[in-house]
Design a protein around this nucleic acid. Sequence first.
DNA 1: GTCGACATTGAATCTTACG
DNA 2: ACGTAAGATTCAATGTCGA
Lengths: 375, 375
Amino acid sequence: MAVLEKVAVQPAAKTVQDTLPLDTILMDDCIDAMRSLPAKSVDMIFADPPYNLQLGGDLLRPDGSQVDAVDDDWDKFDTFAAYDKFTRDWLAEARRILKDNGSIWVIGSYHNIFRVGTAVQDLGFWILNDIIWRKANPMPNFRGTRFTNAHETLIWASMGEKAKYTFNYRSMKTLNDELQMRSDWEFPICGGPERLKKDGTKVHPTQKPEALLYRVMLAASKPGDVILDPFFGTGTTGAVAKRLGRRWIGIERESKYVAAARERIQAALPLDESQLRTMQANTKKPPRVAFGQLVENGYLAPGTVLADARHRWQAVVGADGSLTCEGQAGSIHKLGSLVQERESCNGWTFWHYEVDGAWKPIDTLRQTYLLATQP
Amino acid sequence: MAVLEKVAVQPAAKTVQDTLPLDTILMDDCIDAMRSLPAKSVDMIFADPPYNLQLGGDLLRPDGSQVDAVDDDWDKFDTFAAYDKFTRDWLAEARRILKDNGSIWVIGSYHNIFRVGTAVQDLGFWILNDIIWRKANPMPNFRGTRFTNAHETLIWASMGEKAKYTFNYRSMKTLNDELQMRSDWEFPICGGPERLKKDGTKVHPTQKPEALLYRVMLAASKPGDVILDPFFGTGTTGAVAKRLGRRWIGIERESKYVAAARERIQAALPLDESQLRTMQANTKKPPRVAFGQLVENGYLAPGTVLADARHRWQAVVGADGSLTCEGQAGSIHKLGSLVQERESCNGWTFWHYEVDGAWKPIDTLRQTYLLATQP
DNA sequence: GTCGACATTGAATCTTACG
DNA sequence: ACGTAAGATTCAATGTCGA
């Protein structure tokens, strides 16, 4: 089963589509530009609106260097009310422009996605899925104040509860090694040669990875479909649309982004099946299991006594998966190296637990957990 | 000097907490029951609210089979408005009951979480993270019409932008094998012996796994904290709170759930104090040690030469605990940032001293000093 | 040319105590 | 209240430079 679909035969009749500014960037305000487009004319919209981050002061890494944060004017809104109005205005235009069987994707973070999702529902769209982009390599939380912000959320919605929409179920299942594609997708953040740079610095602060757009378009559009991106930025949507045989329209206000996007899309080459599979290759790496998960899931109770193979040291399991031994405490690895006075230690094989009178490495428990939890 | 002295009223040492119905279930409407609780009295709220309204007025939980059972003739705006009102009503009560340094967790799916998140923000809560529960074994989408719904979303919020909150960073990092805990958590759905059944069928359609609550409480509460669950269901929150040495209050309207929860929590075994030990409790803040104290107490002689790990800079210890390097002088932190031309520097880990031919960070000297001076 | 050590960086609502 | 100083804090991937 191929992932890419064949291009449909072009109809001879002149359609609304012929009046669209296809495969071009409209350099204009997002809402003004959308107003210039005819109703019910595009098949899919992908939108990456400002997140309204509202950052405070500077943020330093532990080594003292400064994080290059999003401080652009386009991300600033005074109040939630102002952001909501902006959101509802552009979403209303999006709804007018979409065909009845079209669908819309919006990406965001916890700063804005709840407000976007509420507006999407209020305007009559019907949410089909929320999709989690799990970042393989997110920026850490340098100050240790919260959980690492390691994902972003996409909302996928049709025009209404009864509306039809495109979902290429077979393509998604094929892409995912014959397993149904789940609502959580893992991709690295955009970096390396893919990341557009000028004079050594990133052109756009929030360039999205092409792999994310590939999957979105493969899932919810057909070859020849018209895809609109009202927050075009450096044109990831356009580049991927071109490579996947879709038509595209971009809207972007800032000329420096428009210039970068034009150059990038010009250079984009159509994609063949093998390249696509490589790019989407499912992460075959075995799921990582932390010792704490065994405690959380009841495989090992807090208070259990562990020992090394030769019973030179004994340690007690804490509620948070820490071990304690003679006043020292730490993770299984940390405590293992502490008591042995070594640089490092594989706690999984070093520490043992007792079962039916025999002592086994806790690594066997990890295998048991994996067997029980993996499909 | 005032003529009349105030009579020193001796408070009865009766705290707000003593007036709370601790470790009990209030069988009542959620909002009515919350109104009976005093203001600023609980440390954490965990809420798993029902997600939608049926025309009859009953609330449905996110049980997939019931999603399409909602009456077709409903008016969406009215329904969303009713749900929003319900959400804002119970969230407002939650806000009144929470202490200023408390936090709230709400779990939901795409059907309701966007509306909940918007209400959370509008009421003045400050979102700290959105957390994704990735289901290891989700229910497949049998009809192949969408992506497999493989996650749920939790929102974690403090009382306001500047409000304090509990986050046991070290415990979370230990739990995750010495890596920062991310915003995506994987757990199996609730099944097996943990899943409450009666006559072979599940008691509650959306019973949450205890492992999920375990991590929530370990991350954002302390032993002895009071945790309120306004949608108690079969009492997962109570069972885990009891196990982890937290106090709990549950609110649940349906008597069959109340009965199941009481029986379940009765059977739950609490961990004793030693088992409850976590990295957080272990690292009770050591008193501050000024670098000068080490010099005063002879741990480091004036004139000693310090260097950074890679010996790019050398500095001499002054009698007052200052450092001097190439004409510049200052505290260990100040000089560290000066020579590196960085905005900040932790001098304790930056500067090293020589002992037996090896160079160690001066932080180890501080540890030695603490060990020697602490009882 | 290759390998290893080191430096750089990414949508981030990122401190606390004391005077 | 506010300003200043002490002190605690990072993961994965890519790029660069020297041996």
